[in-house]
C-alpha cells in the first residue's frame, strides 16, 4: 500500500469532514432547538459562498491585498448568511411552530427551492470560478501533494470555530439558555428564557458557520454555482444524523467519519459512486443505530 496516497486520502477526508462539520453544526443546533430539519440550510451555505464570490470580485478591482479581501468577503458572507437564516426562520418556520411536523418540513423544502432558484435567476446557472484568496504557504511546499495551504486553512479554521462554539455553549449565558431550550422549550420559556431570541441566535450561529464552510470549500474547489448547497447540505445532514442529531460533538465526529468514508471510498473503490456512499451510510446507520453514534435514544412521550 502506498503510504503517501493513504495520507493524501486521509487528509483529504479530514478536509471534507471539516466542511461537513461546519454545515452539520447548523442542522444539529437548529434541530436541537426547534426539532426541525432545516432543509434550506444548504442554501444558506451556498448564499454565503456566493456573497463571498461577489464581494471579493468587486474588491478585486480595487487592487486590494488578497488577505484583506478574504477577511472582508468572509465577514460579509457571514453577515449575509446569518441575515438570510434569520429571515428564513421568521417567514417559513416561526408561523409553523405549533403546526404538524410535516407542514414545517414542506415549508423548509419550499424555502430551499426558492433560494436556489433565486440565486439561479439573479446570478447565473453556470459554474463560476472562485478567486484564489488563500495564499500559498511556502513551508507546505515539500508536502504539497498531501496537504496544501487551503486544506491547512480549512482544518485550522474548523478547529478554531469548534473551540469557540464549545466555549459559547458551555460557558456563556446564551449557551446555557440554548441548552435549556433544547432540553425543554416550554419549561425554558416558563423560567423566563426568551425562546424567540434563542432561536434567532441559533440560526445566526448555524448560518455563520455554514457561511465559513461555503467560503472555504469554494476556495478549495475553485468554483461554485447555485446548486452546491444541495448536495453539501444533504451530506452534512447525513453527518449530523451519523453523529446523533442534536449533539454538537456528534456532528463533528459524524462529519469526519463521513469525510473519511468518502475519501477512502472514492480513492480505493470507485469515484462514480461518490455520492452513494453517504446515502448508503445513512441508511445503514438509521437502521441499526437510529440515534447516531453519540445521540441518546428518545422515546416518544405517551
Amino acid at each position: 500500500m502506498d503510504l503517501s496516497y493513504f495520507f493524501e486520502l486521509f487528509l483529504g477526508g479530514m478536509t471534507r469532514g471539516s466542511i461537513y462539520a461546519l454545515i452539520a453544526l447548523g442542522y444539529t443546533m437548529v434541530y436541537g432547538i426547534i426539532k426541525l430539519i432545516n432543509f434550506a440550510h444548504g442554501e444558506i451555505y451556498m448564499i454565503g459562498a456566493f456573497t463571498a464570490l461577489i464581494i471579493s470580485s468587486v474588491l478585486g478591482f480595487t487592487g486590494m491585498n488578497s488577505i484583506l479581501i478574504l477577511v472582508i468577503s468572509g465577514v460579509l458572507a457571514i453577515f449575509f448568511s446569518s441575515a438570510y437564516g434569520v429571515t428564513m426562520e421568521k417567514i417559513a418556520y416561526k408561523p409553523l411552530r405549533e403546526a404538524p411536523r410535516l407542514s414545517a418540513l414542506i415549508s423548509a423544502i419550499g424555502m430551499s427551492m426558492f433560494l436556489q432558484n433565486y440565486v439561479l435567476l439573479a446570478q447565473t446557472p453556470d459554474f463560476l470560478p472562485f478567486p484564489t484568496l488563500i495564499p500559498d504557504f511556502k513551508f507546505l511546499k515539500p508536502i504539497e501533494k498531501i496537504l496544501n495551504s487551503t486544506q491547512l486553512v480549512i482544518l485550522v479554521t474548523t478547529a478554531v470555530v469548534m473551540i469557540l462554539l464549545t466555549i459559547l455553549i458551555k460557558f456563556t449565558r446564551t449557551g446555557k439558555a440554548m441548552r435549556a431550550t433544547s432540553q425543554d422549550a416550554k419549561m425554558a420559556q416558563l423560567l423566563g428564557i426568551n425562546i424567540n431570541r434563542v432561536i434567532t441566535i441559533t440560526f445566526i450561529i448555524g448560518s455563520a458557520t455554514a457561511a465559513i464552510g461555503g467560503v472555504l470549500i469554494s476556495s478549495h474547489t475553485g468554483q461554485l454555482n447555485y446548486y452546491i448547497g444541495f448536495i453539501a447540505g444533504i451530506k452534512a445532514f447525513v453527518a449530523a444524523v451519523l453523529g446523533g442529531i442534536g449533539s454538537i460533538p456528534g456532528a463533528v465526529l459524524g462529519s469526519f467519519v463521513l469525510g473519511w468514508t468518502e475519501s477512502f471510498g472514492t480513492g480505493y473503490i470507485s469515484s462514480d459512486y461518490e455520492d452513494v456512499f453517504a446515502f448508503i451510510f445513512l441508511l445503514v446507520i438509521l437502521i441499526f443505530r437510529p440515534s447516531g453514534i453519540l445521540g441518546r435514544s428518545q422515546n416518544d412521550k405517551v
Binding site: I106, S107, G110, M113, F114, Q116
Partner: peptide, 17 residues
C-alpha cells in the same frame, strides 16, 4: 416558465403558512 421553480418554492411556504 423560468420562474416556475421559484414560484413553486414560494407557494409551498405560503401554502403551509
Amino acid at each position: 416558465s423560468q420562474y416556475r421553480m421559484l414560484l413553486f418554492g414560494a407557494i409551498l411556504v405560503l401554502m403551509m403558512v
